[in-house]
Design a protein around this nucleic acid. Structure first.
Lengths: 194, 194, 194, 194
DNA sequence: GATGAATGAGCTTTCATTCAT
DNA sequence: CATGAATGAAAGCTCATTCAT
């Protein structure tokens, strides 16, 4: 009857991601989530204090997956520019796959005043990219007159934003490759050490 | 009692902005909005088709104000770089003043699947900035090997994002001036024609 | 369609009394009350702030009816002892008719920590009986060495209690007349001026 | 870890009294009670058939304690009037100490339709006081023309009621001594054999 | 006996929307 | 145009109770 991966927490979280992806947080009901998860209404509250407790849990899961992926794929790359390319690639892919959940995470965190948690969730991502940038500075690939913390955050945001603009809704009047190239070169022009 | 500018539409919109700024869209009720506006419950539906009709209206109003302001202030400036500086300045100021409503507009548009309207709302803003960039290209202030449409959108997003990261929540561990300088130079390095 | 006595407040209150009489406050659901009242769920909350808002309203209504009745019937009586007899009679009758609601009022007020309201509700009743006792003292029917306020409250309680013990549950192993006589004489022996 | 007197029944009952005293029966949850008792959720149902099974058990315990106390203290007294004085004293003290639980017992028994049990619970109390009254009649301290059963119940109720009126809520505008004297003399006037 | 995770019916309350006046 | 009482669907959440271990 029970299945090794059947931690109820994960079952519920998975169902929640699925339902919320489709309808958004506010239109999604706990009852629909538990129905899909195959557990009772009350069981939800054994694992989550309330409905909005879902948001950080979802964000956590999503970012953890993405970061793990990015780390694996960038490890094999030598130069900063190759790594940046991987980052752009992964971000576009993740954004495409998880469009709705990303919107949820963005807006959910914002709307439900859990901004403090947002930073905590993103911190490992930022840390990793700051480290990548520091190495690039040491290797004299990029200029050293930048504020690494700020730039890391700005780049991650810029990349995510570009991906979102492309996939989530509106700007598909050009080739994906053109967009990605534009993005890559915009950054490269700004950071490259000549 | 009534005031010449008191078109009910504007009265309701103003009340809506106030209430929603404080509590977010989903926690705000029509009944609270109409109470603050001093009109009857039913009157709301004479001017707005439904609750979520408010979001684009609010976004519209906010962007219109900001854009008008930016236009006035940039007209007096000669160079692209001065205009960019004004744009950054205005964006930071608006973000600071209207934090909550900006979050609302972002997430509201996203969550409530009115993404199509988003583009329409932002279009005049993009149009204006594209024009500014084209003039800068003609004046040989910035490089001409860019996709103007994409870059205009990316810059506006980048600037807004930086402002949001600064004000809405988390990154105030540095001087505002440092942040703004970092942003300005990041862009300048990428676009400047040497 | 509408009926002159159809103040929704009264319709709901009447339905509430009926339902709660049968099942007690906690077992009664708003949905059952509004169904019986023939109004919508939301309408209830137009007239009552919450479920427990019902208790004082019910108590008020019940006591007002009883007191009005007692006043009318005692006015025709000359002596204190005749009035006391009427009071006993009315109390027993009301208790018999409204058994469940009396239990509700007692326990509801107690349980839901609205004890302050209890006094307010009973005050007119106490006032009236104090006045009756003062006249009896003036007419030298009863002794004057009593604390009128305390005695009025105690007698009303004693009479209600006797009625409740008789009707609400347990002590019907004797004739009603015997009980009432016992009660009447217990009081008379204590108060009569010889 | 376990304590010889820690029969689970008593542990749970004690926890229940504590929790219910504070929040009332309906606001108290089994889960809170078992948490305080330090036993598992299911253990509760090994000792009590259901939640409302608690009420008679609590009432039983409380009355047993009070009656034992009253018995001890009255045994040393000679006359009926001295014993009555002790009874009044004890009742006021118990009422003061156990205000909330008394309210619960009263209203709980009433509301939850376990009125049959009420009589069973009170029976030993009534029996004892009837016996005291019979002795007083034999000793020609009080009149013999009374219905002993009815009078015993009425007096116990009257005394409890007076105490409740004094402590639970409202009537503290006079000295306690005045109230108690008024009560004592009201009864004495009615019963004393001259 | 003891456990405590799981259950699921059922609750109060909210609120966008309608419509007779 | 304006009103606001009425609607009723739908939501989040609680908790007494069960039962496999």
């Amino acid at each position: 009857m029970t299945n090794p991966t059947d931690g109820k927490f994960d079952v519920i979280l998975k169902a929640a991601i699925e339902v919320i992806s489709e309808k958004g947080l506010d239109k999604s009901s706990i009852s629909e989530i538990v129905k899909l998860a195959g557990v009772a209404q009350g069981t939800f509250y054994l694992y989550f204090k309330s409905k909005k407790d879902l948001i950080p849990a979802i964000a956590d899961k999503l970012l953890a997956i993405t970061l793990a992926d990015v780390k694996v794929k960038t490890e094999q790359k030598e130069t900063f520019w190759e790594k940046l390319d991987v980052l752009i690639d992964e971000t576009f892919q993740t954004t495409n796959t998880h469009q709705d959940i990303i919107v949820l995470v963005y807006s959910g965190l914002a709307v439900h005043h859990s901004l403090e948690k947002w930073e905590a969730v993103y911190q490992p991502y930022y840390d990793w990219f700051e480290q990548v940038m520091r190495e690039a500075i040491e290797n004299e690939e990029i200029i050293d007159s930048i504020h690494v913390g700020w730039t890391a955050r700005s780049l991650i945001n810029m990349i995510e934003n570009a991906a979102e603009r492309y996939y989530i809704g509106y700007e598909q009047d050009e080739e994906l490759a053109v967009y990605r190239a534009e993005l890559f070169h915009f950054i490269k022009r700004s950071l490259e050490r000549l």
